[in-house]
Design a protein around this nucleic acid. Structure first.
Lengths: 209, 209
DNA sequence: TAGATTGTTAATCGATTAACAATC
DNA sequence: TAGATTGTTAATCGATTAACAATC
């Protein structure tokens, strides 16, 4: 019901509405959001119904009300602070990715490599030894793991007692955590392999015409 | 049947088997792969059945045969070449991400910013003006889009006539392309919002205990 | 043979879509 | 009122799970 896909769609709807607001839209229809999010209008209304978002028949949805609702659902009521574990190519990119306008702040990166440490950077990069204390002091509950694969599970096990409760894992290993800890995996290689597979399928399908 | 999720699982199975091979496993059971990929053994066997992968009753699956099969499905028979459109923080990270061992090669990055151009780098960064010619000459069919959101659709429309047939889109806008062109979207913001949502749900659920 | 594992068919579950009533 | 749009209930579709037969 409130599954991963529906939350991802909510996020897309929010994004679309923000852009429409920037274009001075006051109301939007399910059709508009469907177009912007690449789904059907029925899907939009069904999603809204599940999350208790109502509009007015004939008049669509008020942009400002929608944004309010989305913000509530997606946790924009308070700043969401993340740490990044492993400051390699990908970790460094995420350290500087513009998440601020979405109410998300990367507060620090952590790495074992002393060459990467930098306390004075806008987003500091700190030694792993400081991680527990930092998480507890700053009350961080969210983390992104961009370490090499062999280090990922160890780092997760280390962070959870300190208070981490949600993790986005970019390593290709499937991480395990206790119940109550949210762990999502994105594997860049798998994503590329997915594209490759469906391009090949499309190719072979057209061969048969 | 052969949907996105099943291909992502195939990719995870392949990854798991490669690690088991490195540990000198000769045979694996559906249970082993299930553990490594975080799914059930029945799911593994069902997936295999759909993709025509068979083992031997009582004896599991031969590691080398599995790898062969996975390689066929996931397009490892030939080197898969990608270009990266937009060399910002994320694009640059992907330019140097170690995809080679998976039979995937990032052959070039493209950007409008002349300050980013570098023909002599290991993975060259070239001006957008060179894109069409490059794609046609090198027969590139795959691309990753890491431009700012406002540029993404324009770049896609520009690339498709040149021969691009599969795209991984990291911008938060939902891209459109003609039938036959595969477009997958990953939004980093949505992924983080997903974690945030489920951490909040878990929190509220435990409040009610 | 007994035990373990695969592989398939049927049942269940959940998500999407269709149909349509409500109402602005 | 007529037309357009929302919102809900029912139907469909597809994916996962259960049950179990096959067999090594």
């Amino acid at each position: 019901m409130h599954n991963r896909s529906s939350i991802i769609r909510m996020s897309h709807y929010r994004n679309a509405v923000l852009r429409l607001k920037a274009m001075n839209f006051v109301r939007v229809f399910s059709d508009n959001l469907a177009d912007a999010a690449g789904v059907t209008a029925v899907q939009v209304r069904k999603d809204f119904s599940i999350f208790g978002i109502t509009g007015s028949r004939r008049g669509g949805y008020k942009v400002d009300e929608l944004i309010e609702k989305f913000n509530g659902i997606l946790g924009k009521d308070e700043l969401q602070k993340f740490v990044i574990i492993g400051v390699g190519n990908l970790g460094r990119a995420l350290l500087h990715y513009p998440f601020e306008k979405h109410g998300i702040k990367i507060v620090a990166g952590f790495d074992i490599d002393t060459g990467k440490h930098n306390r004075d950077s806008k987003v500091p990069v700190l030694p792993i030894e400081d991680l527990t204390e930092f998480i507890e002091r700053e009350k961080i509950e969210l983390a992104v793991i961009t370490t090499p694969d062999y280090a990922a599970q160890k780092m997760l096990d280390f962070m959870i007692p300190a208070g981490i409760r949600g993790v986005l894992n970019f390593t290709p290993v499937c991480l395990r955590g206790p119940k109550g800890v949210v762990i999502n995996n994105i594997s860049l290689v798998s994503e590329l392999e997915n594209i490759i597979y469906f391009v090949n399928v499309a190719e072979n399908a057209s061969d048969e015409e």
